[in-house]
C-alpha cells in the first residue's frame, strides 16, 4: 500500500499553481488536504505523475461574508468551517453537515474544496452545495469562471472541471428571514460514508407557510439529487403529516439507488423517504423558532 512515484511541486501562489497544472496536462493533480486523494493513491487507484500541493496557498484559506453571500476558500480545513461562528450564523446547514464528514483527525486536514471536487455521491459537502445551489469559482491559466452546483456535478466522482482548472472558492447564498435547515444522514458507524443523507432549507412567511424550500438527497444517485418538485408542492403550505407524506412518496418514486455491499436499493429508498420526512419536520420546527 504505497503510492506510485510522482513529481512533487509546491507552488507559492495561485498563478504558479495554475501554470503547473496547465503544463502537466492530464498528468497533473492538485493535492489539498489529501484525505480522499492519498487513500486512492496508496491503493494505486490513482497514479498522478505530478502532484501540485496547494497547502501553502494561504490566500485560498478564508471564510468571509457580505450581506448576501458566504464565501469559503477552497483550502479552508473542514474543522475550521465546522467551528466557525460566521458559518454557523449565516449558513447553519453547512456547520451541521460538516460534523458528519469522516472523523476529527480527517476534518483537521481535509478541506472544503477537496471534498467538493472529489464529488463522492454520498459525501456531505456536495449535497449541501446542491441543496443551497452554491456557486463554484474555478480558475485556469486562461480564465476564471463560475458554475452553479446544479451544473457542476456530472456523475460519480466527475465534475464540470477540466484537468487544467482548479476550484478556488465557493459561494453560498445567505437566506434571510424565518429560515430553518436540517441535515440528516444514516451511516453504519459515525464517520462512515452515508448510506443516504438528506438536506433541507426552508423559509416561512408570517403565517408559518413555506415561501421557499430546497430539498436534496445524497447517496441515492451518482450525484446529489435535488427534489425540484418540493417547492411547487409545498409553497404556501404548512408542514403537516400529509404534506410530508406526499413529499416522502415523491422522493421514494424519484430515487433509483444502487444496491451494494453496504445497503440494498430497497433499504436506501426507504431511508430516503424517512430522512426526507425528518429533515422537513426539523427544518420547519427550527424556522418557526
Amino acid at each position: 500500500m504505497k503510492p506510485a512515484k510522482f513529481d512533487y511541486y509546491r507552488p507559492k501562489d495561485v498563478s504558479e499553481a495554475l501554470s503547473l497544472l496547465e503544463s502537466s496536462g492530464f498528468d497533473g493533480k492538485i493535492i489539498a488536504g489529501g484525505q480522499s486523494l492519498v487513500p486512492i493513491m496508496n491503493m494505486r487507484l490513482a497514479t498522478p505523475q505530478c502532484l501540485i500541493d496547494i497547502n501553502s496557498l494561504h490566500d485560498l484559506n478564508f471564510i468571509d461574508s457580505d450581506d448576501q453571500t458566504l464565501k469559503i476558500g477552497t483550502m479552508t480545513r473542514q474543522n475550521t468551517v465546522e467551528t466557525s461562528e460566521l458559518v454557523k450564523s449565516q449558513c447553519g446547514l453547512v456547520t451541521e453537515a460538516v460534523a458528519h464528514i469522516g472523523h476529527l483527525q480527517t476534518r483537521n486536514r481535509g478541506t472544503i474544496g477537496g471534498s467538493i471536487v472529489h464529488a463522492d455521491p454520498s459525501a456531505e459537502l456536495p449535497l449541501v452545495l446542491m441543496a443551497l445551489n452554491g456557486t463554484l469559482h474555478i480558475s485556469s491559466e486562461e480564465e476564471t469562471r463560475t458554475v452553479k452546483a446544479e451544473d457542476f456535478f456530472l456523475t460519480f466522482l466527475t465534475t464540470d472541471m477540466m484537468p487544467n482548472e482548479m476550484l478556488t472558492e465557493i459561494h453560498l447564498p445567505i437566506w434571510k428571514g424565518r429560515v430553518g435547515s436540517s441535515f440528516q444522514e444514516v451511516a453504519r458507524r459515525h464517520g462512515d460514508f452515508a448510506l443516504v443523507a438528506a438536506a433541507c432549507q426552508l423559509e416561512l412567511d408570517a403565517h408559518d407557510k413555506i415561501s421557499d424550500i430546497r430539498l436534496a438527497l445524497g447517496g441515492v444517485e451518482a450525484i446529489p439529487l435535488l427534489i425540484e418538485d418540493a417547492k411547487e408542492l409545498l409553497a404556501g403550505e404548512k408542514i403537516t403529516d400529509q404534506a410530508v407524506q406526499k413529499i416522502a412518496e415523491l422522493v421514494g418514486s424519484s430515487v433509483e439507488p444502487e444496491s451494494d455491499l453496504h445497503a440494498s436499493a430497497t433499504y436506501r429508498t426507504q431511508l430516503a423517504k424517512v430522512l426526507t420526512a425528518r429533515v422537513l419536520y426539523q427544518a420547519y420546527e427550527r424556522a418557526k423558532g
Binding site: M1, G34, V38, H103, L104, Q105, T106
Partner: peptide, 30 residues
C-alpha cells in the same frame, strides 16, 4: 495499520492538530 486513513493507528499531532500520518506525504511536513 490500514494505510488508507480508516484505522487511526498512525495518528500524530502536526502543528497542533491530530492528523493521520498515512494520509500525508513526508514532503508536506516540511
Amino acid at each position: 495499520g490500514c494505510e488508507h486513513g480508516v484505522c487511526g493507528a498512525c495518528t500524530i499531532n502536526m502543528d497542533g492538530l491530530a492528523v493521520r500520518s498515512c494520509l500525508i506525504f513526508a514532503v508536506q511536513a516540511d
